[in-house]
Amino acid sequence: MTSALDAAARRRSHSRVTDDAPSHEELLPLVAAAGRVADHSSLEPWRIIELRGDARNRLGAALAKGAHARGSEAEKLAAKPLRASLLLAIVVSHHPSRKVAKWEQSAVASGVAHTLSLLLDEAGWGVFWRTGEYTRTKPVEKMHGLAKNEQLLGWLYVGGVPERDRETRVKTVDAAKFLTVLD
Score class of each variant (00 low, 15 high):
E167T: 12
S93G: 06
D54G: 07
L146R: 01
K99L: 08
L82I: 03
L59K: 08
R47K: 09
K171T: 04
K148G: 05
G53R: 07
D54F: 12
R98M: 10
L63M: 13
A107L: 05
L86F: 11
D19N: 12
Y134D: 15
P139W: 02
S15D: 09
H24A: 12
A123N: 08
V140F: 03
A109G: 11
W103E: 04
S13M: 14
G111E: 11
K177M: 11
S15R: 14
D6Y: 01
R70T: 13
D121H: 13
E44C: 10
A62T: 09
G126T: 05
E44L: 06
K102W: 10
V173I: 11
V112Q: 08
L153R: 07
H24T: 15
L153G: 09
V100R: 00
R83W: 05
A55Q: 13
R10D: 14
R52F: 02
A74H: 00
V91R: 02
G60W: 02
K102L: 09
W129D: 05
L153V: 07
H95Y: 06
R169T: 09
R70M: 08
L5A: 14
Q151W: 02
A79Q: 12
S93I: 08
R11G: 01
R47T: 02
A9N: 14
H40P: 03
A21Q: 14
H144T: 06
A32K: 12
N149I: 08
W155V: 05
T168P: 00
E133H: 03
D54N: 12
D165A: 10
L116S: 02
R16V: 05
G126S: 01
P22R: 01
R52M: 09
T180Y: 06
V181L: 14
G154K: 03
E44S: 14
D165V: 07
I49K: 06
Y157N: 02
R52T: 15
A33Y: 00
L152W: 00
I90M: 15
G71A: 03
I90V: 15
A32W: 02
G159Y: 01
Y157H: 15
Y134M: 15
L146T: 03
A8S: 00
L119P: 08
R12G: 00
W46H: 06
S85H: 11
R130G: 03
K148S: 09
Y157C: 01
D39K: 06
T115Q: 12
A55M: 09
T18D: 10
A33S: 11
R169G: 15
P96V: 01
W103V: 11
S106V: 11
L77P: 14
G159I: 08
G126P: 03
A147D: 10
G111F: 06
K65S: 15
G53N: 12
L87Q: 05
V127D: 01
H14N: 06
D19P: 04
A69G: 13
G60I: 02
P29K: 08
A7L: 11
D39M: 03
W103F: 09
S106M: 01
S117P: 09
S110R: 05
F128Y: 14
P162Y: 00
S85P: 07
